[in-house]
């Protein structure tokens, strides 16, 4: 099947701005699904609110467009009740880590088999360019006219500390790498997090004079380096790219399956 076969093509062209990285994330994700040969009927995509969240309307899966920050909580109900489904949960940075921060760390702690994708454009795009918990210091935003003083979360460190068993980062510039990481994340049994730096030329780029979409993407090439590379070792200011964590821990639904087995045996006595 072609990538377009996974789309609800009647809604195209999509609603994202020209050059928005979120379209590339969709592109990379669909290629991952296609290359894995997953059955569309077996996939549920759950999203929250924001530019990122509109992704669920475009994919020809079971799609659940929920509330701001709550995508993982809804997804937990879907997955727990029907573990054979594949859960894809793309979220924006504010969605996943401000209003949805609690759900994010607890989904990671449970190690429930869900793939969380943080589409990190470091800004609230839908509401017009306010800073997010991933903006970091010294950023201009409509709610930070004098630049931000808020420190940012490091998604990789946060997810790792919270117990995610697969943690990776890439960018929209590295689209091939994104597909490869997403494939691994989807196949991983447990809570997987893939942070994808995704440009917002309309708000973040314009406010912070980062140029057009292509220039912002090129910047991703310059400010990142592969995990384990000499470049990253020598320059701690660079963002690491690739797989940070890949570990095995008991998965939540599997463990609950054991509880059910135990309880049913007890009830039969």
């Amino acid at each position: 099947m072609a990538v377009q076969d996974y789309l609800r093509q009647r809604f195209f062209p999509h609603m994202w701005c020209p050059g928005c990285g979120h379209g590339t994330v969709l592109n990379s994700l669909l290629r991952a699904v296609e290359e894995l040969g997953l059955d569309k009927n077996n996939i549920v995509m759950t999203s929250g609110i924001g530019c990122s969240a509109r992704i669920s309307g475009y994919v020809d899966f079971h799609s659940l467009h929920t509330l701001h920050g709550r995508a993982l909580a809804f997804a937990t109900g879907v997955k727990m009740s029907k573990p054979e489904l594949t859960l894809l949960v793309p979220m924006g940075d504010g969605d996943a880590l401000a209003i949805g921060g609690n759900h994010f760390i607890h989904a990671a702690r449970r190690n429930i088999d869900i793939t969380a994708i943080v589409m990190n454009n470091r800004i609230y795009g839908m509401t017009g360019g306010q800073f997010s918990p991933l903006s970091g210091c010294g950023i201009k935003a409509t709610t930070a006219p004098y630049t931000t003083i808020d420190n940012n979360f490091d998604v990789v460190e946060l997810a790792t500390a919270a117990g995610a068993t697969f943690v990776a980062r890439t960018t929209t510039y590295h689209a091939k790498e994104a597909t490869s990481l997403l494939k691994k994340a989807i196949l991983h049994k447990g809570f997987s997090v893939v942070e994808i730096l995704s440009q917002c030329p309309t708000h973040f780029g314009r406010k912070n004079k980062e140029g057009d979409a292509a220039q912002m993407m090129e910047n991703y090439k310059n400010i990142t380096a592969p995990v384990g590379s000499k470049a990253l070792e020598e320059n701690p200011a660079l963002w690491g790219r690739g797989i940070f964590v890949e570990r095995e821990r008991p998965e939540y639904c599997t463990e609950y399956g054991k509880i059910v087995e135990l309880a049913m045996k007890g009830a039969a006595k």
Binding site: Q4, G23, L26, Y173
Partner: peptide, 12 residues
Amino acid sequence: LCELRCPDLAIT
């Protein structure tokens, strides 16, 4: 690379 990066999924 054009196809993979296209945010509009417009290139094949």
